[in-house]
């Protein structure tokens, strides 16, 4: 198999573009789900909030204003084909240069603080990104970009349950998390749940599910059924848009699983706000 060369500069250009597009254009599936929620929402005040969210998306795309002032931590998942050679630079450097450029050229907020428990000095360019790299078959590079806001990321939760506690533990944990988060993560939410693996595997899975299309279901029937059950349970909580009360607390819930240790049932929850900004590209 010949090795395909991809210039590091191409990675940089792509990340810079994804950063600007993700922060200004609400994905169609997300906007569609918010529009659909307007017809089912029971609270008039919640409907008013949904209208403001839809108007915001329109203003952001027509006036090139970021959808939200929190343009996030730059989370990048890379699927790197094993037949690819990145030429002219190191992959992580190329990605961070793309973040630097995208956040400068797009007039995005730089929200990353170095020395987290002491000086908390702003790095001034939103680097370093949070980069996950997976080696996959093939000769392409697939880039997933998510400007992840602090309000929702700060509501992330992890717990390990007794192995026999099963599905009920997951539903209770997700509901409790959403209930206690209230308006902080900016509902209506998209909720990512990672079940199994180890602590870090569970949270990485939870985060990665947030790249899925709203309305899509896991190919495994049992997992898909759990997604439906979680969505219904969360929307019965009454939290509603911005937690003012209502029937639209989540737009969707995604679950990913991984085999786990005989002693464990790891469950991780990673929450995304209604401004569920993601963008992908294949090189």
């Amino acid at each position: 198999m010949p090795v395909r060369e991809i210039d590091a500069a191409t990675i940089t250009d792509t990340i810079a573009r994804l950063a600007v597009e993700a922060t200004h254009y609400l994905p169609e599936d997300v906007e569609g789900a918010i529009r659909a929620a307007k017809t089912t929402e029971r609270s008039p005040l919640a409907v008013q909030i949904i209208d403001e969210i839809l108007e915001n998306a329109e203003i952001a795309r027509t006036r090139m204003l970021p959808l939200c002032q929190d343009t996030g931590s730059a989370v990048v998942h890379v699927e790197l084909g094993q037949d690819v050679h990145i030429a002219g630079g190191f992959l992580a450097d190329a990605i961070n240069e793309g973040i630097r450029r995208g956040y400068a050229e797009g007039f995005l907020r730089k929200s990353i603080a170095d020395r987290p428990f002491s000086a908390r000095t702003n790095t001034q360019d939103n680097t370093p990104g949070i980069i996950h790299t997976e080696i996959v078959p093939g000769d392409k590079v697939h880039l997933y970009f998510m400007p992840k806001g602090g309000g929702c990321e700060n509501m992330s939760r992890y717990q390990n349950f007794l192995p026999g506690m099963g599905k009920k533990a997951i539903v209770d944990f997700v509901c409790e998390t959403v209930d206690m988060s209230g308006g902080n993560p900016c509902p209506p939410l998209v909720i990512g749940v990672g079940v199994g693996g180890t602590a870090e595997k569970a949270m990485t899975m939870a985060k990665h599910t947030l790249f899925r299309q709203i309305g899509s279901r896991h190919p495994d029937e049992e997992v898909a059924a759990l997604e439906d059950e979680l969505l219904e349970a969360v929307n019965a909580l009454g939290v509603g848009p911005q937690a003012v009360g209502g029937s639209t607390t989540a737009l969707d819930v995604f679950v990913e699983t991984h085999p786990t240790h005989i002693t464990a049932l790891p469950v991780a929850v990673n929450i995304q706000c209604h401004s569920a900004r993601t963008k992908q590209a294949t090189i």
Binding site: L65, L67, S275
Partner: peptide, 8 residues
Amino acid sequence: AVGGTGAL
């Protein structure tokens, strides 16, 4: 104010 409506 509605969180996530910074453009509006």
